[in-house]
Design a binder for these strands. Structure first.
Length: 570
RNA sequence: GCGCCCGUAGCUCAAUCGGAUAGAGCAUCGGCCUUCUAAGCCGACGGUUGAAGGUUCGAGUCCUUCCGGGCGUACCA
């Protein structure tokens, strides 16, 4: 049940009846406890349009709105706020209905992770992978059809030297267990050996022209590199599977056709031998955009002077595929903020070419990773920033903590807890921040288990499961009825009822940190309730067991949507 | 040069379409385990939201200028 939407609908109906049909109710959680559960701020703006006194309009709206069974109290406060208290009967219904309500879904493509297969996955691949995966899960839970697209970097000049190197040392897969050093070797040979460099360049040509032997070797390399990625996904609990892979190479065959189509539409300009599109020249919409220093329009190069293609061409082909073949209504690109310009150009290109009309293409950026010195993060020679290393260190640190906190657990249980807590902490550290600006990569901060972290949420869950175990009660059987008495019970019940609106906010904003904040506040509300309200054996046991069961289920569902495990004991 | 993003407590971060007295965690200090997990709870301390103007009933949020930082800026992705 979406309480915010319910209140919005009721109040906006009243606004329309009052003559402000377009006015918004602007409903949100109350900023202070004395202002009730929700507040509506829309009366003040509407009053200005209607030339009425804000407080009088707010009062009239309360009278006119159908709030029976929804709000048990509605009052005008301050300059014209409407303070609303949710009816306990409605709360009771919200807490016994489905935890997540499925909506009429859209077809949504999510482009995330997109590792470069020339190397192993590094920590800077974490954000796209983790954020994209959480968004995909939330959208799916809300009833959308989610089409994951892992646009891997499996094509380009660097693969010439990798194939040539693989050619020289043989196809023994063992030599590829350390992709980092393999790539380093291939690169240094390219710089040092003229003969090798020549064969690497020839390999690129062979790849582009479809030479079977070269393609087979390339495929061999891609398969091994991709299996490394899959191992990281599996270790991290990321839902990406091989069937979601559709990399740059998949669009190779479309590129000539794209160029012909752009040419047929009269969009191409040749400049210094390269084929370009100038959005500013072909559409008045873009005249003020894409300007260089002297006011000249900046081109989007779709084919290099040597006939080769660039990521604009490949991404354009991918965009068209997603719109036309996958029938996407919405395409989300979870990509580093440094590519903001690229996406503005790409979307402009698609617009003037007439690709994906009516489809919502959205670039959702995140910040660049910095080192602890605040300087842009650079990959150190010899690794140390591999994602797999991060996962292992996270589990080791969590394991040490578990052994100290709860030595009674079995060895297998400790492993489970270490995995859930360690990986959960790493993912939560990334998901809980909404930084479009840069962020600092810090092992200690990322692996901290104190405060607003995944272990806090997991601990709240484990405490509830422990309660049910101790009371020998099946959480499924805890169906109430809800009887709200203590302040802590009301706060907890209200927070539980806000899960749906939070998920919808994440889906529309593509910002999973809202879900993190929600779950932290939920766990926090539960901890306070749990400290002050005895459950087992109390007069209010049935109601409190319902609150506990519902909290556990919501925490579990919410963490699951973030890709974080729960454990019954920790 | 131009463009985009950012600047909030000592540190890391919140603040939904512009709403009421800007909130958390960490750190520091002080309390709470003979009853449901102390990985917890309660309290204290901590702010001229980079600066100055402007718009508004109301600005961390919008506009202008400046300061500081990051990134991008035609054949890498």
């Amino acid at each position: 049940m979406n309480l915010k939407r319910l209140l919005t609908e009721r109040l906006e109906a009243a606004l329309a009846a009052a003559g402000a049909a377009d006015a918004q109710a602007i409903v949100g959680p109350a900023t202070r406890p004395e202002f009730g559960d929700y507040q509506a701020n829309g009366a003040m703006a509407a009053a200005k349009h209607l030339q009425q006194a804000p407080r009088e309009l707010a009062g009239a709206l309360i009278q006119a709105a159908d709030l029976d069974g929804v709000a048990s109290a509605a009052t005008v406060t301050g300059p014209g706020f409407i303070s609303l208290t949710i009816d306990d009967d409605l709360l009771a219904r919200a807490l016994t209905g489905p935890i997540i309500e499925r909506l009429a879904g859209q077809r949504v493509v999510i482009d995330y992770s997109h590792p470069n297969l020339a190397k192993e996955m590094q920590v800077h691949h974490l954000r796209s992978t983790i954020i994209g995966d959480a968004v995909a899960r939330v959208l799916e839970a809300l009833g959308h059809t989610v089409l994951r697209q892992n646009h891997i970097g499996d094509w380009g000049t660097q693969f010439g030297r990798l194939v040539a190197h693989l050619d020289d040392i043989g196809e023994d897969a063992d030599r590829l267990t350390d992709l980092e050093s393999f790539y380093t070797q291939a690169s240094s040979r390219f710089d040092a050996e003229a003969d090798f460099a020549g064969r690497a360049r020839q390999a690129v040509v062979n790849l582009q022209t479809g030479d079977p032997a070269t393609l087979a070797r390339w495929q061999r390399y891609i398969d091994i590199s991709m299996s490394h990625c899959q191992a990281v996904y599996d270790a991290l609990g990321v839902s990406l599977r091989p069937e979601h892979v559709r990399g740059e190479s998949a669009y190779n065959a479309d590129l000539d056709g794209i160029i012909q189509d752009l040419d047929a539409k009269g969009l191409l300009t040749e400049s210094d031998g390269a084929l370009c599109v100038f959005p500013a020249r072909v559409s008045a919409k873009y005249t003020d955009q894409f300007k260089a220093k002297d006011g000249r329009p900046v081109p989007v190069i779709v084919r290099k002077s040597d006939g080769g293609y660039l990521y604009h061409s490949t991404d354009l082909a991918a965009l068209r595929y997603r719109a036309d073949t996958l029938n996407a209504e919405r395409v989300l690109y979870i990509v580093d903020a440094r590519q903001a310009m690229h996406f503005r150009q790409l979307f402009a290109l698609a617009d003037v070419a007439g690709y994906g009309a009516g489809v919502s293409f959205e670039h959702h950026p995140f910040g660049t990773m910095l080192g602890r010195d605040g300087r842009p993060f650079k990959t150190r020679q010899g690794g140390g920033t591999r994602l797999l290393d991060l996962v292992e260190e996270a589990k080791a640190r969590a394991r040490a903590l578990v052994e100290a906190k709860n030595p009674d657990l079995s060895d297998a249980e400790m492993d489970d807890v270490a995995r859930a807590v360690g990986i959960g902490a790493v993912k939560y550290a990334d998901l809980s921040k909404n930084r479009t600006s840069d962020y600092v990569f810090d092992w200690d901060a990322m692996l901290s288990f104190d405060g607003n972290t995944a272990p806090y949420l997991q601990y709240a869950y484990a405490r509830i499961m422990s309660l049910f175990a101790r009371g020998e009660v099946d959480p499924e059987s805890a169906t109430g009825p809800l009887a709200v008495d203590a302040r802590e019970e009301h706060v907890l019940a209200l927070q539980l009822a806000r899960f749906q609106e939070t998920l919808e906010l994440v889906a529309s904003s593509v910002m999973p940190h809202h879900l993190c904040t929600y779950l932290y506040e939920l766990a926090s509300a539960f901890m306070r309730f749990y400290e002050s309200c005895p459950v087992l054996g109390s007069d209010a046991e049935a109601s409190r067991l319902l609150l506990c069961a519902r909290t556990a289920a919501t925490l579990k569902d919410g963490l699951d949507l973030l890709g974080i495990e729960t454990i019954d004991r920790m």
